[in-house]
Design a protein around this nucleic acid. Structure first.
Length: 606
RNA sequence: GCCCUGGUAGUGUAGUGGCCUAUCAUGAAGCCCUGUCGAGGCUUCGACCCGGAUUCGAAUUCCGGCCAGGGCGCCA
């Protein structure tokens, strides 16, 4: 017997049709005479009814009721019946199939289900089992409407991306999963080679080098829905393996790449929501983002902007600020307006935020409240009335407003301030839930320079095209990030296409000739064969979709995610392998039961 | 590597030293029930993560571990 319809399909027009539905028994309700089954599949739920007062000709009631008795929850079953209009007043308006039901004539148990470890169906909030139970039985978790919708949205999203890229004559090209391990960056997942004992492939952290070499190979517009792997600790928005929309274009400027991505997002938006999205996205420079929002991926859905007070308070006889400013640091303030927050935060709350601030790496937190037209706090005695008035003006402080002041070294203080800003926004419920705020972060530096050692690190990665001479005091990078609601969706850049310049950048970040040759010799060589000016971008698919769907974690948009410890509770990987397999690979492990590495070192010393 | 939170029937929970022979809901099993839709009614079943310690007495306090989640570091 083949199914004639899905469980989400039948409507009033189908009344009278003989149908066969196959799906899972979600709920059943036996009233002693009349009995119902909610038959579910990924398309919906259809009500199946057995009605003693309306038994179609040819129905074997005994055999049917015996069969229906075997229908445990979540069993896969097949139902034959006739579509019937529901009795007046019993329609279910919440269900698209709710005006009809299938009068059962015959049924078959296709595969019995054991008692599910948790209840499916549309769960009310708070009754989901712990995530480890969901992950252990992910195949059942996936039957939930919420997961079905997430998988559908993800699939539609990727389909629209592919359509858009094809329309814009991008080639979809697969790059190797087994490739060379590269230094720098994240820790690699390694794959031992059997053919070349003692050597390893690495799983790609991104197809970066390959896509650049595709440009050298004239592939011009390339894209790939690429799986990437990083052996670093997970977060709710970070998994050891994840998916990126990876793209690269030749003979382009930064704006061409950004336009293409905006076009893609607009196309996807139209396809998903039938709505136009406003482009171009707003652009904000790295420095301004840091100094206004304390973040390189600012969430602009709410205000709470930092205002620099370094100049304003530089002459205040307040020792702490004096010392910080003399050491090249900064002071900045945040105004919690009376109506939105200031009056809701009492003295105890302020103390709590001072504690929070320290956790965020701030030296402390200064506060002032605007009362009777003046700024008042425990430290106002260290400020002159003129300076206090200037602070009040600068911050636009009005009656009842609460000011938080942060001070310290530029980067760490703004970063800590950004964390505080996010915490405040969350606590005070300032974040609009349904708004989507895209943003290009631009004008980034080429290098991140350690203030102590002076060591240069690539701000994005070492393939970014520098915007000026590498010996200048400040070097900009032709790179940019796309942010959405305070999350980084991805970053892009123009790349270096001149092999000499590439070597220069490698050297700047501390690599010597030998290391450059060993690790990137093949790549630099490729650039030497007429590499075109090129650039591209990578967008995190999991993150993007989880934000679109309002999920707290990317695990909710990945069919089979790993847990926090990079393990799969479903297939119980990673796992030990047979000694025989290790032998074949000529691999020995130091992770012997009961032995730890420290013991081993002391054995060596003896 | 570090910090924080949590772990009680299949599932979700209440319980902060004796009121615990552990609450409630859901579930499962059985019975009843002819219009429900997470049906309803009745009956029954089913649990304190592991190991130590404190105490007359521990689900509850302490120590160690395991597991899960959030964060820091890390993620060019």
């Amino acid at each position: 017997m083949r199914r004639t319809n899905t469980c989400g399909e039948l409507r009033s027009e189908d009344i009278g049709k003989k149908v066969c539905l196959q799906g899972w028994v979600r709920f059943s309700r036996d009233h002693g005479g009349v009995a119902f089954i909610d038959l579910a599949d990924r398309y919906g739920i259809t009500q199946i009814v057995f009605d003693p007062e309306d038994i179609p000709e040819g129905t074997d009631v005994n055999s049917l009721s015996n069969t229906m008795r075997t229908f445990t929850r979540e069993s896969a079953v097949s139902i034959n019946g006739i579509v019937r209009k529901r009795i007046e007043g019993t329609e279910d308006a919440r269900n698209p199939t709710g005006s009809v039901e299938v009068l059962i004539t015959d049924a078959e148990l296709l595969n019995r289900s054991k008692l599910p470890p948790f209840e499916l169906g549309d769960q009310k909030e708070g009754v989901l089992p712990n995530e480890d139970t969901r992950m252990r039985y992910r195949y059942l978790d996936l039957r939930r409407t919420e997961m079905i919708q997430a998988m559908e949205a993800r699939s539609r999203f990727l389909h629209l991306v592919r359509q858009y890229m094809a329309e814009n004559r991008f080639l979809e090209i697969e790059t190797p999963i087994l490739a060379r391990s590269t230094p720098e960056g994240a820790r690699d997942f390694l794959v031992p080679s059997r053919v070349h004992p003692g050597t390893f492939y690495a799983l790609p952290q991104s197809p970066q080098l390959f896509k650049q070499m595709l440009m050298v190979g004239s592939m011009d517009r390339y894209y790939q829905i690429a799986r990437c792997f990083r052996d670093e600790d997970s977060r709710k928005d970070r998994q050891p393996e994840f998916t990126q929309i990876d793209m690269e274009m030749s003979f382009v400027e930064m704006k061409d790449i950004q336009d293409m991505i905006e076009g893609m997002i607009a196309y996807v938006w139209k396809g998903l929501y039938g709505k136009k999205i406003e482009t171009p996205f707003m652009r904000i420079g790295y420095k301004e983002a840091m100094e206004s929002y304390g973040s390189d991926k600012p969430d602009l859905r709410y205000g709470l902007k930092f205002v620099s007070l370094t100049e304003t308070v530089k002459d205040a006889p307040y020792d702490i600020f004096q010392r910080i400013i003399k050491a090249g640091g900064m002071v900045a303030g945040l105004n919690l307006k009376a109506d939105m927050a200031g009056e809701r935060i009492g003295r105890n709350d302020v103390d709590r935020y001072i504690g929070q601030a320290k956790k965020f790496g701030l030296g402390g937190l200064t506060w002032m409240r605007c009362k009777d037209g003046k700024l008042d706090s425990n430290i106002t005695k260290y400020f002159t009335p003129e300076i206090l008035e200037a602070v009040k003006q600068k911050m636009g402080a009005e009656e009842g407003d609460l000011l938080f002041l942060i001070a310290g070294p530029w980067k760490s203080t703004y970063e800590g301030g950004g964390a505080l800003r996010r915490k405040l926004a969350e606590d005070l419920e300032l974040v609009p839930k349904d708004e989507m705020q895209f943003l290009w972060l631009v004008d980034c530096p080429m290098f991140e320079i350690d203030p102590v050692s002076g060591k240069h690190d690539a701000f994005h990665h070492p393939f970014v095209l520098p915007e000026n001479d590498l010996n200048d005091a400040y070097v900009g990078g032709a790179c940019f990030d796309l942010c959405l609601n305070g999350n980084e969706l991805g970053s892009g850049s123009l790349r270096i296409h001149d092999p000499e310049l590439q070597i220069e950048v490698f050297k700047k970040i501390g690599m010597d000739d030998e290391k450059i040759e060993a690790d990137f010799g093949f790549f630099v060589e490729a650039l030497g064969y007429g590499a075109p000016p090129h650039g591209g971008m990578a967008l995190g698919v999991d993150r993007f979709i989880s934000i679109l769907l309002g999920k707290d974690t990317i695990r909710d948009v990945i069919a089979f995610p790993k847990n926090k410890k990079a393990a799969s509770l479903l297939d119980r990987s990673p796992e030990k392998v047979d000694d025989k397999k290790l032998e074949e690979l000529q691999i020995m492990t130091l992770a012997i039961e009961g032995l730890d590495l420290d013991d081993l070192e002391s054995i060596d010393e003896e």
